[in-house]
């Protein structure tokens, strides 16, 4: 599976925010986008996820495998997104948050079993019945990632996912994320300001986006 972007241009009132960007990310790979604030990193993620504000105009092609994503609604793209805030639903407890991401084909008690099985796999079964405000920031971040992955996305977008975590937690969670993405074998695109977040041998696309066909510049 490959997430690719071809000649993508994002304009804000005819002012180009991003012009003719090209890259592709393969399964299990994490591509890091780096650049100053306002250079369009988050807008690029929004465009790929389908949430780009109507004030922007989009040209070019966003493809996941051989499917063109441009014309699909966000919920039809099957692209998971993870923000710097964990955004767990506060009205649901931890296992219910995970069950929210499960496909509809899993029904009844199986939803709960599947959610708790996933929590057990990542060592979080103790907090299954806690509400999001009762668990730590690190635990919330893990639950949030697992919820995203349980929906079986075809790609994942990470918008500064580690920026709100303290240093120790950041290292731990970073490894956890990369491990899970590798395990799921899906492409991931990550926005960050911190060089330490770049995975080993990972692809990096730095502003001003002077890229080659795979977007690979320097790591």
């Amino acid at each position: 599976m490959t997430l690719s972007v071809e000649n993508l241009t994002i304009n804000n009132a005819n002012i180009p925010l991003i012009s003719s960007i090209n890259f592709s990310v393969n399964n299990g790979e994490v591509m890091t986008l780096m650049g100053p604030s306002g250079c369009g990193k988050s807008s690029l993620l929004s465009a790929i996820a389908g949430h780009l504000s109507p004030v922007f105009t989009l040209e070019g092609k966003i493809q996941l495998n051989n499917t063109i994503m441009n014309d699909l609604e966000p919920d039809q793209r099957q692209i998971g997104i993870l923000f710097q805030d964990d955004l767990l639903f506060p009205h649901l407890n931890v296992w219910e948050n995970l069950a929210f991401g499960l496909p509809r084909t899993i029904i009844g008690a199986n939803r709960k079993n599947e959610a708790i099985r996933t929590l057990t796999q990542v060592g979080l079964h103790d907090i299954a019945f806690n509400m999001p405000n009762e668990i730590s920031g690190g635990q919330r971040a893990r639950v949030s990632l697992m919820r995203t992955l349980l929906a079986k996305p075809k790609a994942v977008l990470l918008d500064e996912p580690f920026s709100k975590l303290d240093k120790a937690l950041r290292i731990e969670f970073r490894l956890f994320v990369f491990e899970q993405i590798k395990k799921q074998d899906i492409p991931a695109l990550m926005v960050t300001h911190d060089d330490d977040d770049i995975p080993e041998n990972g692809l990096v696309l730095r502003w001003p986006w002077n890229n080659n066909d795979r977007g690979l510049t320097n790591a």
Partner: peptide, 13 residues
């Protein structure tokens, strides 16, 4: 943001 997350999980508007 919640809607963006939900859409990522396959939920429509």
């Amino acid at each position: 943001q919640l809607q963006a997350v939900a859409a990522g999980l396959g939920y429509n508007h």
